[in-house]
Design a protein around this nucleic acid. Structure first.
Lengths: 333, 333
DNA sequence: AACAAAAATGCAAGCGTTTTTATGAAAATT
DNA sequence: AATTTTCATAAAAACGCTTGCATTTTTGTT
């Protein structure tokens, strides 16, 4: 029945003070005589009083809760971000409502409405792309929003990423300098701005720098899945590619195993650089060279940025780029 | 300032009805004349009214939110459970507050208090073990609790698992029948009831059935980490083990790669069966034979059970064991 | 047409806090 | 000693909704 029976009123009565005073001590308001504070604290202890956060939220219009929209928690990439988010959320006394969106525009809108109805103090959004519907809702709502690991070409809301274009240019350049003239670009959907406007542009830039022609047949836009990668070996060998830059680790492992299972050797016949440096890159043989994005940190920084926004602090720069790195392992020379 | 300005009162005024009526249409209460319902709905639409879930929670004492305590979201095992949980939560109109505990008793207690303060309607707990502190809090609180992928020897609260002992007995039996006389048992801490009371017991049972002696030096209790597994090869070969049952996939991959990197071949020289059938088992070469636990389903069923409890429905059996399976791949004969 | 029963609606009291405003007591000032 | 200022506390009004009960309207019955 009753989740909790003792209220601030009970405490007030027992301690011979008004509710207001109890509220003050609970909230650390300094305008309380030390003696009364002690008395109240003692009663709180005795009664095992726990303030009702819902009532508090209604009265104060703050829920100390932030909504987190994530494509899929069971995807290790996003889960790593989520972990960073939750850790700093906890640090700043916030809780997180986690909602899976499956990248579906419809589900995202629904989830967003739901989160706003719950009066979250802020929102963190993760996804491969930001639909117009969602972006419109963001700008209409007064709730602060930060994107984590997600590109918004408009830069209207806060965001935390690495410099995808530059990272991509960097690794493709390495592949080319190592003697590969036909480097494949293996990504997810080109509908995603991050793939189309950043990574692919970086790829092109590297080719251009090295005076290599851009060849469309070397571009593969597929699913972000292991299976999808596994089946790519045939096309890759047919076209004569000797290396690939892959934008997702599962996909990269698929490519790797597809090659291996069909008699190619890596890195001798085919070199691979992947993008997310998840634990997968360490678990396969040969281990995969990868761009390393500081996923946990990206989540953490995003949440930190959000706390500032919720706190109405002055923000110097709301579009944050964290440094990336390249971890060389055995899928490259 | 104002997250949302329009309230139920505004809608009532515009539609020329009382708040009560608006509330009724919002909540689908049938006692409303179709015509008025339409009118109210229209105004809701026009004003873009969205009921404040916090106020609702206070008035109705239901938050349609459940707390989920998870050791670490970025652990794929728990993340898979979490995904199942969230999906059925969404299905039943609940949201999830996700809280990482790092398996730390202190953090768990803190998180639990926090969740209860937020008036969650129910709780799902995941972890390797259930501390006495936490268990005590569970039984004192009126909030329904379900354990997912987590053993409670007491069976006081709801839980969803597979039959760990039987699954363990089954795979060890297979290993023995395949000719391995020295099968190692590689687990995490023996402080965890699941390892000590279930998996190890299953292991022992299999040995006994096959008239093999129980040898303590074949038991390895270590971390659940890739690194820990990687370094086990020396001890394993020294003791003459020719197979291992491993309770965690990352650990198993570590063992596998440790062996491979030191010249052993799998499954010829050493056979491995792991426990969680995560995508990792497919990504390594050779692929790993594994017990398969229906992780997503375990989460889903746990949440479904919780909805019943929150709904005060009659529960036939609150300790649920889901069927397990064994997926044979290339780390066994 | 009159009345009873049923359906639709309104009223108002919560829900458990925070927060503004008012008040009384103590301390400081003259 | 009178007066002002400060500090501590209390009283009470929100916050935006649900819900039990009372009231009004509609429907059905004779």
């Amino acid at each position: 029945m009753d989740k909790q029976t003792i209220t601030i009123y009970d405490v007030a009565r027992e301690a011979n003070v008004s509710m207001a005073t109890v509220s003050r001590v609970v909230n650390g308001n300094p305008n309380v005589k030390p003696a009364t504070r002690q008395r109240v604290l003692k009663v709180i202890e005795e009664l095992d009083y726990r303030p009702n956060a819902v009532a508090r939220g209604l009265a104060s219009k703050k829920t100390t809760t932030v909504g987190v929209i994530i494509p899929d928690v069971s995807n290790i990439f996003f889960a790593s971000l989520a972990r960073g988010i939750d850790d700093v959320a906890t640090m700043y006394k916030y809780n997180i409502i986690l909602a899976n969106s499956d990248e579906s525009g419809q589900k995202e809108v629904q989830v967003l409405n739901n989160l706003l109805a719950k009066q979250v103090d802020g929102l963190i959004y993760m996804g491969h792309t930001l639909s117009d519907d969602v972006r419109a809702k963001f700008s209409r709502s007064k709730t602060p929003v930060v994107l984590a690991g997600t590109i918004d070409p408009d830069e209207q809301v806060g965001s935390v990423n690495i410099d995808y274009k530059e990272a991509s240019r960097f690794v493709v350049d390495k592949l080319v300098k190592d003697g590969n003239e036909k480097v494949a670009f293996i990504s997810g959907s080109m509908d995603y701005s991050i793939n189309r406007d950043y990574r692919l542009e970086g790829y092109k830039a590297a080719l251009k720098e090295n005076h290599l022609p851009y060849d469309e047949s070397l571009i593969f836009a597929t699913d972000y899945s292991y299976k999808a990668g596994e089946s790519l070996w045939a096309k890759l060998t047919a076209i004569g590619a000797t290396a690939a830059y892959v934008v997702d680790d599962e996909l990269a492992v698929g490519v790797l195993n597809g090659m291996l299972d069909h008699g190619m050797s890596v890195p001798e016949d085919f070199q691979i650089i992947t993008s997310n440096n998840t634990i997968l890159t360490e678990m396969v043989r040969p281990k995969l060279t990868s761009i390393s994005q500081p996923l946990y940190d990206m989540g953490a920084v995003a949440m930190r940025l959000l706390t500032k926004m919720m706190n109405k602090e002055e923000i110097e720069e709301k579009t944050i780029l964290l440094p990336y790195d390249m971890i060389e392992r055995n899928s490259t020379n």
